[in-house]
Amino acid sequence: KLCLVCSDEASGCHYGVLTCGSCKVFFKRAVEGQHNYLCAGRNDCIIDKIRRKNCPACRYRKCLQAGMNLEARKTK
Rank of each mutant, 00 (worst) to 15 (best):
K1R: 05
L2Y: 15
C3W: 00
L4K: 15
V5W: 00
C6Q: 01
C6D: 00
C6G: 00
D8S: 10
D8V: 04
D8K: 04
D8E: 10
E9W: 15
A10I: 05
S11L: 14
S11M: 11
G12H: 06
G12M: 08
C13T: 12
H14K: 06
H14W: 09
H14D: 11
Y15K: 05
G16T: 04
G16Y: 02
G16A: 04
V17P: 04
V17A: 12
V17D: 03
L18P: 12
L18F: 12
C20L: 00
C20I: 00
G21N: 05
G21I: 07
G21T: 10
G21F: 07
S22C: 04
C23V: 02
C23R: 08
K24D: 12
K24C: 13
V25F: 12
V25M: 07
F26P: 00
F26S: 02
F27V: 03
F27Q: 00
K28D: 08
R29A: 11
R29W: 07
R29C: 07
R29Q: 07
R29M: 06
A30L: 03
A30R: 03
V31I: 14
V31D: 04
V31T: 11
E32F: 04
E32V: 09
Q34T: 08
Q34A: 11
Q34M: 13
H35P: 12
Y37W: 08
Y37G: 07
L38C: 10
L38D: 15
C39I: 00
C39P: 02
A40K: 12
A40M: 08
A40S: 07
A40R: 09
G41M: 12
G41V: 09
R42Y: 08
R42K: 15
R42D: 15
R42I: 08
N43D: 12
D44F: 03
C45S: 01
C45A: 01
I47Q: 05
I47M: 05
I50D: 10
R51A: 08
R52N: 03
R52A: 09
N54R: 09
N54H: 13
C55D: 00
C55L: 00
A57P: 04
A57F: 03
A57C: 09
C58G: 01
R59I: 02
R59M: 05
Y60G: 01
Y60R: 03
Y60D: 00
R61T: 12
R61K: 11
R61V: 15
R61L: 12
K62A: 11
C63R: 01
C63I: 02
L64V: 14
A66E: 10
A66L: 10
A66M: 10
A66S: 08
A66Q: 10
A66C: 10
G67F: 03
G67A: 02
G67W: 02
G67H: 03
M68Y: 04
M68E: 03
M68K: 02
N69M: 11
N69A: 13
L70Q: 11
L70R: 14
E71F: 07
E71S: 11
A72N: 10
A72Q: 13
A72K: 15
R73Q: 08
R73M: 13
K74Q: 15
K76S: 15
K76G: 13
K76V: 12
K76I: 04
